[in-house]
């Protein structure tokens, strides 16, 4: 049995409960929204002689999509709020590189982890800067997807809430371009998810810091000397 005894290792509570809830609700919503969204855009061919009054499956698919969209949006709103009141790993400045040191870290991560020019690993307890900045773009995608989604939904709803978004549709030139935009952006989520999951595995494999399970329990293993750098 291979064991590694790290004398200097320490456990840090990184992801607070709201952050973890946000993450998994968000993940579930994205899966549900992508699957139902794809089906709405490209329904399967069912050859049957049925009368329309006997079934409503496509209506249900759309219903699930709309419900998941509401959950997705308000979950995102709560996370944005938590970006101002949460701990230092959850704060908004983790996602927007404003300081020079943050840009340095960003390029460093690019060099070490993505291009693999050096063999060292980079210490970061919360999000590393490249990940954080990438999440910033996913937030933008969340926003755009919510805007176009609710904007399109507004036409078939009497509720005041989706109506708040209806201005986006004429801005994009009508329902069809808005719908197309919404559809194209879905692929951003799919490709992001692929890379995201891979990189979690990668970091856990290389750094052995319990990254994967940290999003369940909240705790990460950090080498003692890395902790006090911030």
């Amino acid at each position: 049995m291979e064991t590694v005894k790290q004398k200097t290792i320490k456990e840090v509570y990184v992801w607070e409960l709201p952050v973890r809830f946000y993450h998994w609700i968000n993940a579930l919503c994205i899966v549900v929204l992508s699957v139902t969204g794809y089906l709405i855009g490209r329904p399967p061919a069912l050859q049957s002689a049925a009368e329309a009054s006997f079934s409503y499956w496509f209506g249900w698919i759309r219903f699930i999509h709309f419900v998941a969209a509401f959950v997705f949006f308000f979950n995102f709103v709560l996370r944005t709020y938590w970006g101002f009141v949460g701990n230092k790993y959850a704060q908004w400045y983790n996602f927007i590189p404003l300081k020079k040191s943050q840009w340095e870290e960003l390029f460093n991560v690019l060099k070490v982890d993505i291009l693999q020019l050096t063999t060292k690993s980079i210490p970061s307890i919360g999000h590393n800067m490249l990940a954080g900045f990438t999440y910033f773009f996913t937030f933008l995608a969340f926003l755009l997807q919510s805007l176009t989604g609710f904007g399109l939904y507004a036409a078939m709803s009497d509720s005041w809430f989706p109506k708040l978004f209806s201005w986006i549709v004429p801005l994009l030139g009508g329902d069809l371009p808005a719908r197309n935009f919404h559809h194209i952006l879905m692929w951003f989520f799919i490709i992001f998810a692929m890379i995201h999951i891979y990189l979690v595995f990668y970091h856990d494999y290389i750094e052995r810091n319990g990254l994967t399970s940290s999003m369940i329990g909240g705790w990460k293993f950090v080498k003692q000397d890395e902790d006090d750098k911030e």
Binding site: P43, A45, L46, Q47, S48, A50, A52, S53, F54, S55, Y56, W57, F58, G59, I61, R62, A155, M156, D175
Partner: peptide
């Protein structure tokens, strides 16, 4: 103010997932 889709007499087929291929 309304989509052609919302006033279409074929709309029930859409909701039932019955499409012309």
């Amino acid at each position: 103010s309304r989509r052609v889709h919302d006033t279409c007499y074929r709309r029930p087929n859409y909701d039932a997932g019955l499409f012309v291929e």
